[in-house]
């Protein structure tokens, strides 16, 4: 099936679904209008043969920020020595639409059609949550835990949403663009 075939099939079932503005190169990428669409959409796709949840991730579009005065979630550390420096590590690219949103990205694969569909959902950074897909795809379990750990996004209905990769003492979510690393004993 070509990308257009899949898209028209999806739109026949879900008229609100549109092609995303930024396409993942070479693959069909659709944008969900709201997070309520995710579960019906994923369930329908699973029924249509897209039964392999290949990837679940998220992107923080805040952009490189000047940390001074822009720390939403300062990493609380009671043992912080005075004067921990905050450094801007990468420069903003001109003309790129940075915005305070987190975009969820899922990709589901149909092994029979050899096709892949990317689903995208934009949510505000301050209330970054989406329904959990654990009920449909078991592989969502650890991937959602990873995203929760690294990006601080929540998945409603996940049975065991705990940190998975970073150590227990680490405060904050490292892949958020406004994450500030505070020097600890491992930096010395």
């Amino acid at each position: 099936m070509t990308q257009d075939d899949i898209l028209s099939k999806i739109q026949a079932e879900f008229p609100k679904i549109e092609k995303a503005a930024v396409q993942v190169k070479d693959y069909l990428t659709v944008k969900l209008a709201s997070k309520d669409d995710l579960i019906p959409m994923a369930a329908w796709l699973k029924k249509e043969g897209f039964d392999y949840l290949e990837m679940a991730t998220a992107v923080d579009y805040l952009g490189p920020v000047n940390m001074k005065g822009y720390i939403r979630q300062p990493n609380f550390n009671a043992f912080l020595p005075g004067g921990a420096k905050i450094e801007v590590e990468s420069a903003a690219a001109a003309g790129y639409p940075y915005r305070p949103v987190i975009e969820f990205v899922w990709s589901v694969v149909s092994r029979t059609d050899r096709a892949r569909v990317f689903l995208k959902l934009e949510v505000p950074r301050d209330a970054a949550s989406a329904p959990s897909l654990v009920g449909l795809f078991k592989s969502a379990d650890w991937q959602e835990r990873e995203n929760f750990d690294l990006l601080g996004v929540r998945y409603e209905g996940h049975p065991n949403l705990l940190k998975i990769l970073t150590p227990d003492f680490l405060q904050g979510h490292p892949l958020r663009k406004d994450y500030v690393h505070v020097k600890d004993r491992y930096d010395e």
Binding site: V22, K25, G63, G95
Partner: peptide
């Protein structure tokens, strides 16, 4: 600026990279 996904059959399975570029270095 754009997004790309590439995947290969690595020794342990399907290894994929989702890459987002903002036009920077």
């Amino acid at each position: 600026a754009g997004e790309a996904y590439a995947h290969v059959e690595a020794a342990r399975g399907d290894l994929g990279i989702h890459l987002v570029s903002d036009g920077g270095m």
